[in-house]
Design a protein around this nucleic acid. Structure first.
Lengths: 208, 208, 208, 208
DNA sequence: TGGTAACCGAGACGGTACGTCGAGTCTTATC
DNA sequence: GATAAGACTCGACGTACCGTCTCGGTTACCA
């Protein structure tokens, strides 16, 4: 998501910004993440890889965190969708495997926790992460819940506040479990694990 | 956890390392984490706060990550215990609130994700985190499971491999959900949320 | 002599180096030499005095020795000239007193021997000293000899190789005696000493 | 010359200092000078080469300069003598070549100018250099003068003050010229150069 | 013969400076 | 006004030595 996306005052005078530069910078950022990881990625190196001056880079992004969030967000844009697998169990397994596939990429593995860590001291960054990444994931969970309700696998919740609370809980459980398994326990999220996790979650949703 | 823990050959020649320095450094590290956060914490600043030369610090820890892991681990040592609350539901709520209380401290909030992010590129660091922090948390989860089995709230699993798999799953779910709620969603883990989460989890364990 | 002197390809792209920084650094170096002497002069201190970042300093000079040679050379540039005093004896006395006046300055006294000592292990540094300092002094000696030959006080030497050998010898004798008197014996080079030395030298030149 | 040479209160109690350590340290110092030069010689390295603790080294010498002066002085002790060559010209040539041979050794070449440079800011060091090195050289010059006077090659000077002034001048000229030729001009002092220099000097002494 | 005082090795200690690197800004000339 | 190039300030890095200190242990003299 380019930071200049919905600029309210679309500048008219002077040389326009090169859209190729935007693409080249984000590509270079992802490449640098793969090769170097978050810790050794530097703005100067990204600029050099993109064949762009540092000025050009700083004109678009305020710093490393913002740049990396946008670079990673593009991956989530591309890869997150949730085809209807026909059952809640299958849908949950699917979303878990999709989350995990993204988290196990070297670009995201090294970057996500780092920007989240930065965001504990930076509210603007937290908002950017939320709108660029987290909300996109969450919408998949909501979609899955709606489908399950339509199929009759889950009851409808009338109180919208309670419904939101439950959705938040489910999302934290799904996303949290996948992240923890992948990055902290450093174990693979394979179909077997996904099956066990989905069974646990759905059992809990039905039983409660 | 001192980096030189249980060295098999406790050197006896030369001036011994000052244990006061160890303590002062870890205290200073926690103080710096609170004031500055992970990103702005510097080795030089920690050394200055501890009234210690930088070399003294580097003689014991290879870098910021290792130092911070040990500094944070001390908190987990102190605060992680699990009194018997009489029921599985109460025990789960308790462990969730205890994890959350630790994660909501400013020292840990800013530090944990950062070192986990670093550890994605550094196996030794990952091992250190696991043995200093993660395993300590996990033992609480195992303790709770054993109690529940003794109470008859949970069935005993005969196959040890399956038992271990289930324990890992439960641990990733609990720890992951708390971490995600606290650091990504940035919402408080209050008794109400803990109740809802525990109900979901226990329902899943019974139903599956 | 600026380190970038007469660069054959004067780069034209990018921000040009600040000539004010050059001046400020050399001034600061001389001031630091006076206050601290060679031994306690540090690159960081010079940079701070000059109001310049350390990197700016290292971009221009490879180290303390190179910097100090250039800083001292500027003094030799300014102060070395040799007006015609009318006789060989007067010219020799004059050049001796001029050398001595430079060597007795606190900047040069502490610096010259130190860089010469360094140069025993560093050919590039030796060349830099030679071209920036020694050759400038030598030209004065050559000038005095030519004048004396024109006046008829000294015979002309036809063999150019022999002439060069003699000039080298005379230069080593003059410069060496002044340096040794000033820095090793630590005695002042006053007009009386200069008179005695000039008489000895000229007697030797005539007699041989 | 050990720094503890003529201690007025020769301590009687306690373990005496190891004389082997003294020797090993001075040998190690000279070896380090040859290999590393003054600039890269470190106290720790000398101690390690000598197989001695740093404490042992600092118990005997206050610092690098003092240590190196003593280490180099030992060479001057060993090698400076002046056999009677039968004529003033031959004696001067001989002393010049002897000085030069010492100065061209790698130990002294790198060390002498450096300690002289240090001594410009340190009177105690200057005195140590003078008594350990310079006076030893000077005595050779005085010896040569006395012989020449006994042979009738030079007139006797009745005024002792004037005699001292002349001796000082000659010494600065001889030592200075050799040092300058060797270390600044970086040209060899060979027999031919010595002959030319001696002729110049003696001519001056006779003519004046 | 047993103290004791100064020695010795090893190596940790508080410091200071090093030379490098990266961040983010600024200044050129060019497009 | 955007751009490439590169110099700029600033601050932290991790290392190397400095000279001091604190250990356990040794070695000569003196009581």
């Amino acid at each position: 998501m380019s930071s200049a996306a919905s600029s309210p005052a679309p500048r008219r005078t002077g040389r326009p910004r090169s859209p190729e530069a935007d693409r080249a910078i984000l590509d270079a950022t992802r490449a640098a993440l793969v090769e170097l990881g978050w810790g050794k990625l530097t703005m100067g190196d990204v600029a050099a890889r993109a064949g762009v001056a540092k000025t050009t880079l700083y004109r678009r992004w305020a710093g490393k965190s913002e740049l990396v969030v946008d670079a990673v967000a593009a991956l989530f844009d591309e890869h997150l969708e949730l085809p209807d697998r026909g059952s809640l169990q299958a849908d949950v397994e699917d979303v878990v495997l999709r989350f995990a596939a993204l988290l196990e990429r070297p670009e995201t593995k090294t970057a996500l926790m780092a920007v989240v860590a930065e965001s504990t001291r930076d509210g603007a960054l937290r908002d950017r992460i939320r709108s660029a990444i987290v909300d996109r994931q969450k919408s998949l969970v909501l979609l899955g819940r709606d489908r399950a309700q339509r199929r009759g696998e889950l009851p409808r919740e009338d109180d919208p506040a309670a419904a939101a609370r439950t959705a938040d809980l489910i999302f934290d459980v799904i996303a949290g479990a996948v992240v923890h398994r992948t990055l902290v326990s450093a174990e693979p999220v394979d179909p077997e694990w996904a099956r066990g996790f989905a069974a646990l979650l759905i059992g809990g949703l039905r039983g409660s």
